[in-house]
Design a protein around this nucleic acid. Structure first.
Lengths: 183, 183
DNA sequence: CCCATGTGAGACAATTTCGTCTCACCGAAG
DNA sequence: CTTCGGTGAGACGAAATTGTCTCACATGGG
């Protein structure tokens, strides 16, 4: 009965990931609330999307903090980051594919800051000799986002097991699919 | 002046990738044609999306054929596939994020067939000892799609260089970001 | 018990988008 | 030059969506 802002935003993200043209009425129904209530809390579709972006950014920055990317090896940091991001994967999956934020101002700035942190993490790994230098930090950052989104979507679609989320992403991103000789 | 179906579909994919809620009028303007003309060739938004799916599927299957995935090593096959897919990357980028095809019938069947080919290719690589067996073919397939979409998007957003498309994807997917000892 | 707050359902007009139509125009073929 | 097919622009009503409103009702606090 009571309005749960976060639960509403999460189900909205889940719906909009599958059907990006969903109406406010569909979003409300998916969240189990009335359209009027949805409208009371989010002035319109734009406001809803902006709220999703803000929540996603907030959770991602919290995950970045929790991951303590500057402690230990690159691998340890990445494992902590993916673990911390997993609960927000549904939200991230929506945001990765939501490229409409070309007009946003503060939101975009926030994502630039987060991008810079991830990118700097990859650069440090390269400088310490733990990561290859022939793949740019910018690409590794984008690939990280893409794989998180792909992982969340694959699980939601039932094509991979939910418990493999962290392992799949970390192993592919760090080690790749090739079977190395020393393994 | 003359109607170029493929050019229209490509610009539609590019627009819809950025703004998934774009109207038919916006799609028409982006393609440089009138809304009436767009409507003469595609009955509605659904028909347009279906045409995009069909074109994308057709091009991807052509890329699968051209890649001759059963010849040579896994690495050679993947390089050929990514090279063959690059011209269709914009289309693929749209389709990867277009998860609305839960209703489609023939289209969905076509994609299942393509999925099966990619998945079988990864499985063969595993059986030959060229690829790791702890990452499922289903996940590798999804990751391939995701990385192609991410790569296309990153280039379009200007975050990575267009000429690096093939290298970035193949190297990350096969080798990962970790710097191996033998390198 | 009563009140206050917030919700769901529905009504309603305004706006947007869609689908179809007409018409003038352009270019290529004859 | 004339004809014909196809296009762009715009008009038009239909349909969908939005934004706002009212009202009955549920729930929790005083």
């Amino acid at each position: 009965m009571t309005f749960d802002r976060e639960q509403v935003l999460r189900s909205a993200a889940a719906l909009l990931t599958r059907k990006s043209t969903a109406t406010m009425d569909e979003v409300a129904k998916a969240a189990g609330i009335g359209r009027a209530t949805l409208h009371r809390h989010f002035a319109g579709r734009d406001a809803l999307v902006k709220a999703l972006e803000n929540l996603g950014l907030q959770e991602f920055e919290a995950a970045l903090d929790a991951a303590r990317l500057d402690e230990g090896t690159s691998e340890e940091g990445l494992r902590r980051l993916i673990a911390a991001v997993e609960p927000s994967a549904g939200l991230m999956s929506f945001l990765v594919n939501e490229n409409q934020l070309f007009e946003g101002d503060e939101v975009n700035e926030g994502w630039s800051r987060a991008d810079a942190r991830v990118s700097a993490y990859f650069r440090r790994g390269q400088e310490r000799g733990e990561l290859r230098i022939d793949l740019t930090p910018a690409w590794l950052t984008e690939a990280l986002y893409g794989l998180v989104g792909t992982g969340a979507w694959s699980i939601q679609a039932g094509r991979v097991a939910a418990q493999d989320f962290q392992y799949m992403i970390v192993e592919l991103l760090l080690g790749g699919a090739r079977r190395s000789v020393e393994q």
